[in-house]
Design a protein around this nucleic acid. Structure first.
Length: 819
RNA sequence: GCCGGUGUGGUGGAAUUGGUAGACACGUUGGAUUCAAAAUCCAAUGCCCUUAAAGCGUGCCGGUUCGAGUCCGGCCACCGGUACCA
């Protein structure tokens, strides 16, 4: 026997075998049952981190399991290669983003190969190549033609010192991360895709996604935020900024009589018009703009406001209502104005208390009395009060009658609104897909014609840290359109655009005649299993669902949803915190691969926690995983060193052998369920460990003992292929398995091996365990009850008491209720 | 702030449909082996208690039930997202 487990050799040999045999190339013949298993592709940041290792260990386990079930498996890998970090690295290292990115890709590809993931490397793609992004540009021009794309003013973080737009994460405590300057909100023209046109379908189709975690579906549902409400207007006595009235939207028209003021966003046209001759208001508006655009910052900022002095007219009472400007009202949402009902809305309540504005109760509590709002707002629904003709009505009737009254008066109507906003895709950055639009000399814009695509991003550039190289280069902007001099758009796409369709391009990465080869796309799509971090639950997954529907409506594919089943993996923690360079708590996968082998790293990643929970990294845990792999190696070698095992004769087994054989088949049943339905690889591994412990305890070298051990090891090796494929490749050959173990059939359960003669049943008295008893497996309820009542220790607790009830759960327990 | 999630021994976790809390692994302790150590193997290991029995025990408070880690109500802490990080 070879004397020790040597992962380096075993893993090198297995990987060479897979490469030589093209083991993981998906068949593109469109035949057979397919399984498309996809993990979220990485941003090529430099080297793999533990989050990647975990993500790909999970998807590889699923892909390999499906191969063993006989499916034609597509398990591709590529690179989400555009993005902000490349620009930062380029400035820091004085290299071009392209060079840095391609070099990172090269290194990370080798690391992924060293981990033995069964990716189909023949389909690799990187989103920063023109072969990829040209189709994204083409698709955007198609959306433009269909009216699904438009340009409007939108808010960004402006760094007044660096004269540049910052991402939200580049704004720290309201200041630019490089300049330290106070950031201000600024409006610039940007391109948008009309995701709101698909809001209803995106919402309704969530019900079809039964293979998605409920948490993700709920989050998306809330994000889309469909609501039924009333759009209404407060009149103005004179026209201001071209407006005769202030439009607001409310889901609580039943509280309309409780309105005590109206709030405008700082950027609202009326606010700006009033500020023209009110210096203190102008100053307040200026102050309001000193904050990042991030919702989390805005919502937690202290609520501030200022009375404009303007009064508007309540549409039902005709009373005058003061108009305020408030920093918590956002111009980008709805109409940029809200009606404030402090008695029945928490934010308005806080604001009214601060500025001593009136609070008027118009809803009754559960006792039918006007709600008490001396301590806090009353936000429950209830009967109306102090609401004119509408007193006493419940929410539903009040909603309808008030809406009808507003409609009669021409002051409002019932509408459906979505919280979801159109997708702003413009970025004022260099390292991204150039937006394929042309600015015409007369001010309009048109798409770059399809035959002039791609609009190439120059790769050989120098980053100075301020201006985008394509914005700084007047030559790049020049575009001759049939003799007409135009200018290219110098903004680039949001990187979410690339990640919204890469899963589809993997079905035909080389296709040169279009965005997708429909035949391939329709065979492979939808993705059967998608695996990635929970942090993508809303944005990436919603944009990808949206793009799928856009591609469907363009006739590029036929399905309605991109991902049938979704697994959102948890984060990898060290000492209870997310691994990060700044915290200094990172663990480098490479050094572990070098010291313990890829199998150990994969095993620990899958064993330490269920995939959807966070995983606490532990050096000791890695050692434990390594020990198990070594034990397995030794168990198999000690067995095969004794020569070939005799054939199994199930009629000739002793009790101990029958027990072990039952364990083998119980384990196959459990592991199959854990791998397939439950996707709890940690419990699958624990069950296999238990089986190995029992196999190690098999008594003696009798022929039937050896035959059972052979059967057990064969099953263990097959079940571990998805988890520790290298050692299984090695052991499979050793146990004289035929062919490539990557395609060995998944083991099946022998039902006859599962039969039991007797079971252990728990006896409880008043719900507490007082005895255990061994009973025949086929004992009926009466027999269980009789046997339980006869238990000595149970009787001790029944003494002097009356048996009220006996509950029998066959196969589990008997509970004797006494009192 | 808002939306979603998580909380179980010294540690990571298990308990799948309301039915034996702590599987599996780590750590620790004791033993075997060894000149010695490493490695390996065996045993013990929730808390309280000298042992056994009993009692206690799944973030906190309360409820439903014969029975609650699991269901319901109210809190607390931490994590993810919050539309320009990916």
């Amino acid at each position: 026997m070879e004397h020790y487990y040597d992962p380096q050799n075993i893993e090198r040999d297995a990987q060479a075998f897979w490469t030589d045999h093209r083991s993981f190339a998906a068949r593109d013949t469109l035949e057979g049952e397919k399984f498309y298993c996809l993990s979220m592709f990485p941003y090529p940041s430099g080297k793999l981190h533990m989050g990647h290792v975990r993500n790909y260990s999970i998807s590889d386990a699923i892909a390999r399991y499906q191969r063993m079930l006989g499916k034609n498996v597509l398990h591709p890998m590529g690179w989400d290669a555009f993005g902000l970090p490349a620009e930062n690295a380029a400035i820091a290292n004085k290299t071009a983003p392209a060079k840095w990115t391609y070099s990172n890709i090269g290194h990370m590809r080798e690391q992924l190969k060293a981990l033995g993931f069964s990716f189909d490397w023949e389909r690799e793609l990187a989103t920063c190549t023109p072969e990829y992004y040209r189709w994204e540009q083409w698709f955007f021009t198609r959306l433009y033609e269909k009216g699904l794309v438009y340009k409007k003013m939108a808010t960004v973080n402006w760094d007044p010192v660096d004269q540049t737009v910052l991402a939200n994460e580049q704004v720290i405590d309201g200041r630019g991360w490089r300049s330290g300057a106070l950031i201000e909100r600024r409006e610039i023209p940007q391109w948008f895709i009309r995701i709101t046109a698909y809001a209803e379908e995106l919402l309704n189709d969530l019900d079809k996604l039964e293979g998605w975690p409920d948490a993700v579906r709920t989050m998306q549902r809330n994000w889309i935020g469909k609501s039924r409400g009333v759009e209404l207007a407060f009149g103005l006595e004179q026209v201001i900024a071209g407006q005769e009235r202030i439009e607001v939207y409310t889901t609580r028209p039943d509280t309309l009589y409780g309105v005590t003021y109206v709030s405008l966003a700082a950027e609202h046209p009326i606010s700006l018009a009033l500020a023209a001759d009110k210096p203190e208001l102008a100053q307040f508006i200026k102050d309001c703009k000193l904050s990042s655009v991030a919702e989390a910052d805005m919502a937690q900022a202290e609520k501030r406001g200022m009375d404009t002095g303007l009064r508007c007219i309540h549409p039902l009472t005709g009373e005058q209502v003061p108009v305020w400007v408030a920093n918590y009202v956002l111009m980008d949402y709805g109409s940029g104005a809200v009606m404030a009902v402090p008695a029945h809305d928490e934010r308005d309540y806080e604001f009214a208390c601060k500025y001593d504005l009136p609070i008027k109760t118009v809803i009754c509590d559960e006792q039918g009395q006007p709600a008490d709002v001396t301590e806090s707002a009353y936000t429950d629904k209830g009967a109306l009060t102090a609401s004119g003709d509408f007193d006493g009505l419940g929410f539903d009737e009040a909603f309808e009658r008030i809406a009808a009254r507003l409609e009669e008066l021409g002051a409002g109507k019932i509408t459906t609104q979505y919280r979801l906003r159109d997708w702003g895709v413009s970025r004022q950055r260099y390292w991204g897909t150039p937006i394929p639009m042309l600015n015409l000399p007369d001010g309009g814009e048109i798409p770059i014609p399809a035959d002039r695509l791609p609009s190439l991003l120059p790769e050989d550039v120098i980053m100075d840290g301020v201006a985008s190289p394509i914005k700084a280069d007047p030559q790049w902007r020049k575009f001759d359109l049939d003799g007409q001099a135009c200018e290219r758009e110098t903004d680039t796409f949001d990187t979410f655009v690339q990640s919204s369709w890469y899963y589809a391009r993997f079905t035909c990465p080389e296709f040169a005649d279009g965005m997708l080869d429909k035949e391939q796309a329709d065979y492979w799509l939808p993705v059967d299993q998608y695996v990635g971090g929970i942090e993508h639950a809303i944005l990436h997954l919603l944009y990808a669902r949206f793009f799928h529907k856009l591609m469907r409506d363009e006739g590029l594919l036929s399905s309605d949803e991109p991902f049938t089943r979704l697994l959102t993996q948890g984060m990898v923690l060290k000492d209870g915190a997310k691994m990060s360079k700044s915290k200094g708590n990172t663990v480098d996968p490479q050094s572990l691969i070098d010291s313990h082998g890829a199998d150990t790293v994969r095993l620990f990643s899958l064993f330490a926690a269920p995939p959807d929970q966070s995983l606490e990294w532990s050096e000791d845990g890695v050692e434990g995983a390594h020990r198990f792999v070594k034990r397995l190696w030794r168990l198999a070698h000690e067995h095969t060193d004794k020569g070939p095992a005799p054939g199994l004769d199930t009629g000739a087994l002793g009790d101990a052998e029958r027990d072990v054989r039952r364990k083998i088949h119980e384990t196959i049943a459990k592991v199959s369920d854990d791998m397939g339905r439950r996707q709890t690889f940690n419990t699958a591994i624990a069950a296999i460990m238990e089986l190995c412990n029992e196999l190690g305890r098999l008594p003696g070298d009798s022929p039937q003992s050896r035959a059972v051990l052979q059967e057990g090891l064969d099953a263990v090796v097959r079940m571990l292929v998805p988890i520790v494929p290298h050692i299984c490749h090695h052991l499979w050959g050793l146990l004289s398995g035929d062919g490539d173990v990557s395609y060995a059939p998944w083991p099946s359960v022998d039902e006859t091996a599962l039969v039991r003669d007797s079971l252990e049943i728990v006896v409880q008295v008043n719900g507490k365990v007082r005895a255990r008893m061994e009973v025949p497996a086929d004992a009926d309820k009466d027999a269980l009850e009789t046997a339980a009542l006869a238990q000595e220790n149970a009787q001790r607790f029944m003494e002097g008491k009356t048996v009220r009830k006996v509950i029998v759960v066959p196969g589990k327990l008997v509970n004797i209720v006494v009192g």
